[in-house]
Write a protein that binds this DNA or RNA. Structure first.
Lengths: 230, 230
DNA sequence: CGCATCTTTTCACTGACTGCAAACTTGTAT
DNA sequence: ATACAAGTTTGCAGTCAGTGAAAAGATGCG
C-alpha cells in the first residue's frame, strides 16, 4: 500500500503495526471509560466495550487483563519521580515532613486538572472494587518510598519497621483527608492542601485531640496550638 | 433427631434457625480459607468450597457475594463489637491510645488461632486483589470507629477530619506492622503485639525518627545496642 | 511475489454469579 | 399433634468474565 499523499507530520518512528496497536488500545480505553461513566461499572459488559471499540471481545483481553484494568491509569514513571523527589528533600528534614511535602505536592499538581481527577476519585468512591486493581501497585509505591526513607535515616528497610510506618501513615492521612474532603461540600478546591497540611501537623503532634467546639455543658478551653509548618 | 446427651452449655439466646445460619456461614468461611491457603486463590472454585462446607453452590452465594467476600476478615457483628469496645475505654484516654488498645486486643484475640490467621494474612500478601473486596468493608469499619471517636472527643465526624484521621492512621500502623512482621523471619509469634505497641508509641511521639544503628562503613563494630524490642 | 511474523478473530470451554420456583425446615398459633 | 406462615436450601437455566488454541488476516521484508 502506497503512502497517501498527505505526508504524516509526525516523525513516524514506529511502524504501522505499533501505531495501530496504540490506536486500538486507546480506542478500547476510551470506549470503556465513556460507557462506564455513562451507565456505571456493572451495567457495561466487555462485549459492549469491544463492540464500541470495533474489536472482537477476545481482542479486548489481548490488551487488558480485566474490565477494571481498562479503566486504570497507573503510571510506573510516577513512582520513580516521586521517589526522586523524596530523595531530593533536605537531608536534615524529618522523614514525616519530607513525605508529607512530596505527597502534598503531587496532589496539588494532579489537581491542576480537576475534571479528570475529580472523576477518578469519584469512581473510586463509588466502585471501591477498583481499588483492588491498584492495590498491588500502591503497595509497591509504599515499599519504594519506605526504601528511600530508610536511606535517609540510615535504617534498614527490612529490619526496622519505622520507614514503612512513616510512609503508611502518610498515605493514610492523604486517603483519609481526600475522602473527608470529598464527603463534605467543599467550598473551594484549594482547601484540600490546607486540610492535608493540618492533618500532617496533627500527626506530627502525636495525634493529640484538638479542642472541641464550645459545648453548652462544660467548656474546658485548652489552648489551641499554633499551626505552624509540619 | 434428638439432641445429643451433652446439653449445650450456652444460654440459647438465638433460635435454632439463627444458630444454624451462623454455623453454615462459619463452615463456608473456614472451608474457603483452608482451601485457598492450601492451593491459592485461583486454584479453588466456589463449587469446591461449597462441597467442602456441605452446602450447595447456590447456598454459597446466599451467604457471600463473591469468592473473595468469603475470605474477608470482617463482618458486621465484629464491627459492632469493636465499636462497643472502643466506647468502653476510659473517657479520658487519648483517642489514639484507645484505638490502639482495641485494635491490638482484637489482633491478639484473633491470633489465638494462628493456623487460620496466618493463612489469612498470607493470603492478603499473595493476593493483593483481595484488598478490593475489603475496601468497602474496611471503609465502613473506619467510618464507624471514627464516629465513636467523634463522640468521645466531642467533635463532629462530618465536620472535623480529626476522628477519621486517627482511625485511618491507626489502621495504617496495624497494616504496615503486620506486613513488616510477616516479611521478616519472625522468631516468635508473640512479638507482633510488641511491634504494634512500638509502632503506636512511635506515632504518639509524632513519628520522629529513631536513632540509626552503627554504620557498616567503619571497621569499628560498636557493640550491638541491647535492643530488646524489634 | 513469497515467506516469516505479528495481530485479530472465531470457537469452545471453565468458572463466577443471578433469578426463579420448587422443596424443605423452623417458629408459632391453634 | 396439626397446620400454616415464614425463612432457608437447592436445582436449573441463563448471562457474563476470562482463557487457550488454532484459523484467518495484516504487516514487514527480501
Amino acid at each position: 500500500m502506497g503512502m497517501s499523499a498527505g505526508a504524516v507530520a509526525e516523525p513516524t518512528e514506529l511502524g504501522l503495526r505499533e501505531r495501530k496497536k496504540r490506536q486500538t488500545r486507546d480506542a478500547i480505553r476510551e470506549a470503556a471509560v465513556r460507557l462506564v461513566a455513562d451507565r456505571g461499572l456493572e451495567r457495561v459488559t466487555v462485549d459492549e466495550i469491544a463492540q464500541a471499540a470495533n474489536v472482537s471481545p477476545r481482542t479486548f483481553f489481548n490488551y487488558f487483563r480485566s474490565k477494571e484494568d481498562a479503566l486504570a491509569g497507573i503510571d510506573k514513571d510516577e513512582i520513580e519521580e516521586t521517589c526522586a523527589a523524596l530523595r531530593a528533600r533536605p537531608a536534615d528534614e524529618p522523614p514525616l515532613s519530607a513525605v508529607a511535602a512530596i505527597l502534598v505536592g503531587r496532589l496539588e499538581r494532579k489537581m491542576l486538572d480537576p475534571q479528570i481527577q475529580q472523576a477518578r476519585v469519584q469512581m473510586h468512591q463509588s466502585h471501591p472494587q477498583l481499588f483492588g486493581v491498584h492495590a498491588a501497585t500502591w503497595r509497591n509505591f509504599e515499599r519504594r518510598l519506605a526504601e528511600v526513607i530508610a536511606e535517609r535515616t540510615g535504617l534498614s528497610a527490612d529490619e526496622d519497621p519505622y520507614p514503612a510506618t512513616v510512609v503508611a501513615v502518610a498515605m493514610a492521612v492523604v486517603r483519609s483527608t481526600i475522602s473527608h474532603w470529598q464527603a463534605t461540600e467543599n467550598p473551594s478546591a484549594a482547601t484540600l492542601s490546607e486540610n492535608l497540611r493540618a492533618g500532617f501537623d496533627s500527626v506530627a503532634r502525636g495525634l493529640t485531640p484538638p479542642a472541641p467546639p464550645p459545648e453548652p455543658s462544660g467548656p474546658s478551653p485548652a489552648e489551641r496550638s499554633p499551626t505552624g509548618a509540619v
